Amino acid sequence: MDTIAVADTVRLNAVRKVYGEGANSVTALDGVTLTFERGSFTAVMGPSGSGKSTFLHCAAGLDRPTSGTVLLDGEDLSGYDETTLTKMRRERIGFIFQSFNLLPALTVLQNITLPLKLAGRRPNRARVTEVIQRVGLGERTGHRPAELSGGQQQRVAIARALVTGPAVVFADEPTGALDTRTAREVLRLMQESVQSLGQTIVMVTHDPVAASYADRVVFLADGRFVGDIYHPTAEVVAERMTHLGAWADEQPAAGGRQMRTSTGGTY
C-alpha cells in the first residue's frame, strides 16, 4: 500500500458522473478530485443541484462514476463487481441517514448488530457493548425504534454505522430531522467518534451550524469542487455559501476569512 493509501481513507480522482445521453444528458459531477484523511470529520456543502448527493453515492460505492476513480484505502472501487462491492460496503463503509432507516420490528441491539449478521460475522460482544455505551444507549438495548425519541433513534443509527469498525462513515443530512438541541448532541457524538476512535466521517449537509462541527468543510458548485475551509465557524460557512455557483453572480465580492479554492488560490 502506498503513502496516499495510508494517509487518505477516501480519494476521488477526476470523477465525472453524467446521467442520460446526448442533448438530454446532465453532468452531476464534473472532474471532482478530493481526498479525505484518516481520522478526519469533513462536511460537504453546496447549493441545491451542486452534486452533493451524487458525490456521496459515488464516493460510497453506491453508484459508479462515468469516468475517474474512487479509492478506498488505496483500492480502486471500479475493479469490484457488484457482489464484491456490496460485501465491501457492508464491511468497510458505515452509513447514517436523515430518516434513521431502522427496522421497526427489531430491538436497539438487533438493529445495531444487523450489519454484522448481514456480513456473516459473529458480533464481538466487547465491541458491541463499547459502541452501545459510547452512544449512551446502555439502558435501551431491548427497546424498539417506536419507543425511542428521534435523537435516540439517530444514536442507534450511529452505533450501527460504527459497529463494524468501518474505514469511513458517510452521513447524509444526519441532523435534518432533529431539533436543534438533539442535533447538537448527535454532532458532538460524531465528533467524539473521530477524536476518540480515529473514525473517518464524511457528512453531506445544508446546515452551516452542523458543518461547523467538522474539521473541514468542502464546497461543491455546479458539480465541481470549488474550495474548502478548515476549522470552520457557522458564520463563515454561511457567508461562503452565498458566493457559490450562480449565487455568486448576485452577491458582492467575498470578504473576511479566505477560502482555499480548487486551484490552490484564495478569494
Rank of each mutant, 00 (worst) to 15 (best):
Y267T: 02
S193A: 06
G227Q: 02
A254G: 00
P252L: 11
F225W: 08
D8C: 06
G31M: 15
A234P: 02
T42Q: 04
G51D: 03
L56T: 04
R240G: 15
T107M: 03
T233V: 07
G68S: 06
E192P: 01
K117V: 03
P145F: 01
S212L: 10
R127Y: 01
A146T: 06
V217F: 06
F97N: 00
D81P: 15
V169M: 08
P104K: 05
A171N: 12
M203L: 13
E130A: 13
S99P: 05
V44R: 07
S53R: 01
P115R: 00
P174R: 02
S40K: 14
L197H: 13
R134E: 14
G198E: 09
L118E: 05
A5Y: 02
N101I: 07
D2S: 14
S25K: 14
S25R: 12
L178T: 01
I201W: 11
G120D: 01
V163N: 02
A246P: 05
G176L: 12
L62N: 09
I4D: 14
L114S: 03
T3L: 12
V128Q: 03
S212K: 10
L34C: 07
E21N: 05
I201R: 05
A253Y: 09
G39T: 12
L72H: 14
D2R: 06
L85S: 12
R92Y: 15
G165M: 14
V236I: 09
D222G: 05
T266L: 13
K117W: 01
A14H: 11
T84S: 14
A23M: 14
